[in-house]
Every structure is written in structure tokens, then in C-alpha cells.
Write a protein that binds this DNA or RNA. Structure first.
Lengths: 197, 197
DNA sequence: GTCTATAAATCGATAGAC
DNA sequence: GTCTATCGATTTATAGAC
């Protein structure tokens, strides 16, 4: 029963954050009340406030975790060394891997709109991340490695859209998870629906 | 005729809906209060309730408009006649055209989560729409027109992600608007970042 | 660390005057 | 068609006992 569970001190910041992120994803951040969160965690609102300063502190912690994973990717050797095209390939594959590892946190990050200070901070971080991708696309075009038929900035945006849409597709335990980063990279570089022949 | 008297009645359902959709997009549906809406429209909450039954009625009207545009596209000759590949091309281009014409409404549709009845209805409609695309992708593969390197269902999802990400890019008045449907279609079928050569 | 109780503000929505 | 005034429910957050 929930009584035995609630009696135990199983409620640390990490597990409560996990519960909160799950609720934020299902209902949306704004539509989720602290009452919803505490009910999902099996404690009262007051107890939840003992672990986190408030609703936005929960959001901030979740967004930080998600962004840390993405920016760590940009520091990997494969993302800093080599030709622009090779670096792009590494980052696209890495984005999918991060998304698979931290699915709920990345999902939440992608749904942020900008009502609170934490949300605006996360949006700015995302813009910084996307700008680095856009720069790489431009460099790959200038180096003659790829030939985009559209503005490099639009190509970068479409690439983001394609990569990020995987959060709606991937579910842990799904077969073929190990091949997903390569599959998505192939779709991005060779076409989602390439002509046969 | 639309007289000066009619022009003075700036607060009809259509113009209020436009204001509301704008607010819903900036702040998110759940985070937008009727107070926010009436302030943005320049009338009181009570006056707003004179035109719409409530907040969800506004959302419903906006989602209906957006979905009507998308489903009308599926009825066009180019979407019903020809090979699966040709029909796919027509629909992808058409989605971008609808998105350009009804940008705020489509943007709102893509952000719906499922908290209210109208939202769940819209999500179901979107699933129906996406399922038709997925069927076409499968048929194009079986007909030997395209060779997707991944599951057709994943290819359809990536295609959706690419197409829908254009709402974050396109802004009315942007140069090259007329070419956008073709540009996005080319990116989808030939690759966003195809190798040079 | 968890609880009950409640403050203070805001929410969607309505009544009724003009 | 717009307004003022307000209801009842819900929200974030806090106080203080155990």
C-alpha cells in the first residue's frame, strides 16, 4: 500500500524530479499543479516544498539536466575535430543518443515556451545550441562538402525539426534502438524518402 | 456592403479569435487567462464571454480552422490521383502552403497536448492525418518508387517533424515564400544535407 | 520529512445594469 | 455589446505541530 511506501524516506530530489517531469510531459507544465505533483509522488504539497523551492525550481532542474547533456555533446572530440560534415554527422547521431538516454528531460526541453525565467533561459540555451549547428552547416557548404538546395539557415532548422521529432517516436525498449542514431543521420543526409534506383 | 458602421464593430468572433490565437501561441493555452485575452482585445472579460462560451470554445474554433485546411488538402486531385510518390510530393508541398496561409492556427494545432476534450479531439484528428501520410509512404516503398533506409513508419514521423518545423522558421513577408513548398519537398526527398558532387 | 490548516492571489464563469 | 461586481473553485506557497 501507499502507506508503507510513504512512511519510508524514498523521496529525494532526484526521484521527485523524475515524477515531476513525467507529469509536466503528460499535462504540460502550466496545467500541472503542485497538488498534481504531490499526488503523483504519494506525498503532500507541503512535503514536496520541503525538497524543492517551488514549481519553477523543478522545471529549472529538469531543463538544466537536459541542456547539460546536449552541450556536453558539443565538447566531444568528434564534434570539435574533423571536417564540418564529419562533425555534423557526429552531432546528429549524438543528439539522438542523448534523446534516447534522457528522453523525458529532452521532451520537456522541446516543449518549453517562455513564460517563466527558467523557460526563457532554456530557450536562449537552445538558440545557442542551434546556432552552432547552423554555423557548421554553413561551413560544410562553403567547404564544398554538401550542396543544400535552400538557405543554410533553413536547412539547419529542418535538420532540427527532423532530429527533435524523434522524441515522439522513440520509446525505451523499442527494438532497433541501437541503430536509431545512424538511421536518423542517414535520413537527414540522404533524404527521408529518396528515389529508388 | 461593409459600411463604416460595420468596420467600427471590430469585436466580432473572427477578430477576437485571431487575438486569442496570438495569445495562446505566445503564452501557451493553459497559461493564458480570459483576463489576458480580454486585455489583449481591449474589452473586459464579460464582453469576451458575450462572443464565446468560454476559453475552450476559442481553442476549439481555432483547431477546427487549422484542421479543416489540412484535411481539405487531402481531397485535392493531386493528393488522390497518381502514384504514391507523386501524391506524397503534392501533400508535402500543400502542407507548407497551408502552414504559410494559416500560420498561427497551424502553430497552435502543433502545440496541443491533450488536457481538454477539444485538445484530445485535435490530437486524434492529427493522428488520422499522419496515418494517411504513413500509408502513402508504405505504398511508395512497396511500389518501388522510394527506398527508405528505415521503417516506413519512422520515415513518416521524420517527414512530419521536418515539415512541421517550418512553423518555427516561416514568417509572413519573408522573401522566398513562394519557393518554400518546393524547397522543403526537395529537402525531404533528396536530403537536407546531401553530399556534394 | 511528513503532516494539517490556511493565507493570498488568480482562475473561469455569471448576474444584471445600461 | 460593453460594463461593474462578484461567486466559488483552484493555485502557489507558508506556518507550525509531530
Amino acid at each position: 500500500m501507499t502507506t508503507a511506501r510513504a512512511r519510508r524516506a524514498v523521496h529525494d530530489r532526484s526521484s521527485l524530479l523524475e515524477v515531476a517531469v513525467g507529469e509536466f510531459i503528460t499535462r504540460g507544465y502550466d496545467a500541472t499543479s503542485m497538488e498534481d505533483l504531490s499526488r503523483a509522488a504519494g506525498i503532500t504539497k507541503s512535503s514536496f516544498y520541503h525538497h524543492f523551492a517551488g514549481k519553477e525550481a523543478l522545471l529549472r532542474a529538469a531543463l538544466e539536466r537536459s541542456l547539460a547533456g546536449l552541450f556536453a555533446l558539443l565538447e566531444e572530440p568528434g564534434a570539435t575535430d574533423g571536417t564540418p560534415l564529419a562533425r555534423l554527422r557526429h552531432i546528429v547521431r549524438g543528439q539522438i543518443a542523448v534523446l534516447q538516454r534522457d528522453l523525458p528531460y529532452v521532451t520537456l526541453l522541446l516543449r518549453v515556451r517562455g513564460n517563466t525565467e527558467s523557460e526563457r533561459w532554456a530557450l536562449e540555451q537552445r538558440r545557442t545550441f542551434d546556432a552552432q549547428i547552423a554555423t557548421l552547416v554553413r561551413e560544410a557548404v562553403e567547404a564544398g562538402e554538401i550542396r543544400v538546395g535552400v538557405e543554410p539557415a533553413l536547412a539547419a532548422r529542418l535538420l532540427s525539426g527532423l532530429v527533435n521529432s524523434v522524441v515522439e517516436w522513440y520509446r525505451p525498449g523499442r527494438p532497433g534502438a541501437a541503430q536509431l542514431p545512424d538511421d536518423v543521420a542517414r535520413a537527414a543526409f540522404e533524404g527521408i524518402l529518396p528515389a529508388a534506383g
